[in-house]
Every structure is written in C-alpha cells, then in structure tokens.
Design a protein around this nucleic acid. Sequence first.
DNA 1: GCAAAAGTGTTCCGGATACACCCATGG
DNA 2: CCATGGGTGTATCCGGAACACTTTTGC
Lengths: 241, 241
Amino acid sequence: MDFRKRDNVTVDCVIFGLDTNGLSVLLRNRTLNMYDDDFLVINDWVLTGYYVFKSKTLEESADLIFKEISGIQSADKIQFRTYGNPGRIKSEKDLLWVRSRGVQAQTMTIAYYYALPLEKVGLKHEGFRWFQYQSLPELGFDHQLIIQDAYEDLKKRIMTEPIIFNFLPMKFTLNDLQFAFESVLNIEIDNRNFRKKAMGKPYIVPLNEKRKGVSKKPSKLYVFSRDVYDAVKEKDYIISV
Amino acid sequence: MDFRKRDNVTVDCVIFGLDTNGLSVLLRNRTLNMYDDDFLVINDWVLTGYYVFKSKTLEESADLIFKEISGIQSADKIQFRTYGNPGRIKSEKDLLWVRSRGVQAQTMTIAYYYALPLEKVGLKHEGFRWFQYQSLPELGFDHQLIIQDAYEDLKKRIMTEPIIFNFLPMKFTLNDLQFAFESVLNIEIDNRNFRKKAMGKPYIVPLNEKRKGVSKKPSKLYVFSRDVYDAVKEKDYIISV
DNA sequence: GCAAAAGTGTTCCGGATACACCCATGG
DNA sequence: CCATGGGTGTATCCGGAACACTTTTGC
C-alpha cells in the first residue's frame, strides 16, 4: 500500500442535495486572515477536494472526501470532467491562498459530483453550508465553472440515466419524484401527465404503503428497482418530461 | 514557458475516422523484441498518448499529439473521461513494455476523442493504421476500454451536439449525412424520413452546387452553419433518427 | 365541514414511421 | 437506352401536451 499523494493531482467533489427548497450545493468556507485576526483577506466558498493517493482509485479518493464531509461511506458519483490548464488558478486571491498553504498552484483536478437527499448528509465540520443552486455565493478558484459544468452534466444525464432517484429517499411518492425533476431541470411539469408516465415505468414500483406527512390525504409510496431497470433499460428511457 | 512534463499525467487521443467503410479508429502498432530481433514479445495496437507539458492546456497537449499523427494543426475534440486507477496497467505484457521504456507504470490519462473524415488524415509515420470500429485488433493497456468509452460517449453526444458534421467534408450531401449517422449509431435509417428531418433543420443549408461522383445523377450539396446552429440550438435538437 | 395535498381521463396535435416509385445523368 | 444512385409524398400511429375536478384525510 502506497500512502504517498500525487502532489499535483486532486479530486474535487460537487455535492448536490435536494430538499423542499430545491437543488442545493454543499460548499466550504475559505478564509484567510492577514496581519491580525481582524483583517479577512479572503472570505469565500469553495468545493472540497484533496490530493489523490497513489494507491487509491479516483473513485476511492472521491469517496474519502465525500465521507469526510458527509459521514456517508460511499455513494453513486459521476466523473464529469478534468481541469488541468496551467493558469486555472490565477486571481490574486487564489494565488495568495495557495502560497499561504505552501501547495502547488498548478494542480490538475478530476471532478466528480454526488447527488443525494440533503437531509441524509450530517455535516461533520464547521464551515460547511448548503447553498441553493440558484443563489450561489462568491466562489474561489474556478469552482464556479466546475459547479456549472457539473450541473449541465446532471441535467443532461438525468434524462437518460436513473440518477434522479439518488436525490430521493428509498421510498418516495410520485410527487416527490416530480418535484425532483422540476428542481433539477428548473421547469414546471404537468402533474397528470407526469404521473401517467411514471406509472408506466416498470422500475418505479408501487408499495402497499402510504406516507402521512403534511398533507391530509396519505400518499402512495414507490421504490426504484435497479434490477428491473437494468433488465429493461435498453429499450426504455427514464422519463421524458 | 515551462517545458517540463508532468511525469505521471498523459493525454490519450482516440481518433475516429469515417469513410465509405464506416467508422474507424486510428491505432499505432506496438512491438517489442527481446533477446534477438526475431522474438517479438509484444505485437499489438495502442492509442497514441503523451505526457502533458506543464505549460500547456490539456487541449493543447491533445492537439500536439493529434498533429504529430495527422498533420492537422488542431480540431474539435471531446474530453470524455480520465483514467487514473493504480493497477490500470497490470498485464505482464504492459508491465514489460513500461519497464522496457523506463517510464512510470502509474500514470493518469485524460482521454480525448477526435472525429473527422478519414481521408483528411495524412498519416505521417510508419506503424499507424485505421481499423474499422467493428473489428478492432488486440489492444494494449486498457485501451480497449478507453475506445469503448469514447464510442459510447460519441453515440450519446451525436444526438444532442452537432459533432456528426466533423465526420464530413465541408460540403456534403444528405446521403453522406445519413450514412454518417448510420455508421456511428450502427443502425439503418429510412431515407425519405431522414431527408425530411434534415431539410427541416435551418443550420443544414443547401448550396446551389452539385457533386458529380460515382452516381449518375448529381447530388445537391449542403453545408453545416455553426452560426445558425448557435442561434437556434436551445430549442432545436440535432436530428432524431 | 373545510383546508390541503393526492389523485384521476380525455381530447388534440405534431412528429415519427412505414412504404414504392420517378428522376437526372453518364456511359 | 439502361444502370446507378438521387430524390420525392402520403397515410397512419403513437406519445406528448393541454386541461379541471374529485378524493381522502387531519384538524
């Protein structure tokens, strides 16, 4: 086992969470004080990343970061792009930060994103916060771009792969599912048409179980069956909203 | 300008070409002789890759490789995945090769693919050959996997981005275009329906010009207008075959 | 009994599919 | 004049979109 790090390659994780407020991204506060503690030179937000260990796969490296933040051992993730241009880090602020940490400015980063119900994440550390995708704060490095790329990939992929279910608890209602699509795609969907389509998918299977929630009328629960999905995926798409 | 290489990061290029035989991939022969010249220990085919220069962007690095092979300065390319697991290179053969070259076995590779008309490529070096996608030879390293991933990405992307036109000369006939789709997607398409759909796309613009070829009847030529495409892409898809 | 979300059917329209013959030219 | 690929139109079908009211329960 080789615990050395690759000193010029990192993995960054974009963590998407969904709750009743819609789609959010988990960010970490980055601060730097100078001269004395009251002079905050840097105070913005960044994705969490870390060096890739030589003995780990990229996926394992991503999961290590993810676990450190969320407490969750591992989850579905999507590698969507690698950023490696010299000059990625070029603003005064970012160079200052890099120097203050004594790390290399020229790093290459393989970026992954995760999708999950926001409430599943138990934040372990200070300085982390969820931001709604529609109102992100000031971001450090090129993380604005990375998040945007992740989001574009998510929007595309959600139409052809069953990752929407990652945003939902194991048991969910059709209205939950519709809300997830609406949040990610940032559109409104007709409820009747959506339900028809969803009920037509063999891998969205109804349970003999109801959820009692804020609503007065209990709602039927469904689960996503990956087995069924794998069996039919060739000829069937997710849902065309 | 920093001409040093990153010794553990390479860029690999999958080059797809299209001609009347359909979709092909450009590969390089990899041989290794041992003891004497008659004992070929390795004789298979690989993608072409090279180390990333610290002062170059990933895209520039890919284009350098592409130019070295094809003589073409630069072209559209798609970064589709990064491979970086330790143990990527693990077969006897590949380790032998790596040792014989005195290079690192644990490299990370950012993979790109190019698409272009096969005849545009003027092969500059010995040892390169086109193989039809459907009958690839024995491949070294994990290049079988990389090519397959590239192909899957290509098939998906061709439906939502105008990369099919990269396979065609500037002026092309609708039948050329249909053949390109058929070759990449490995399906048959109804000619009349296809023409209707293609002619409905504003960015596929007819010229007052005909091509005289093997056919007796001259065929109308079209060009792809990226300007028009950019203007309408939000509401319009490529072609749903 | 009323508030609040769950749940349900029908009509219409447009795009996709299936399908077979004439056209223009070069030899 | 014929061989070769280029080019065209119509009928049908299916899935998507639009649209408003009833149901079930908790309070």
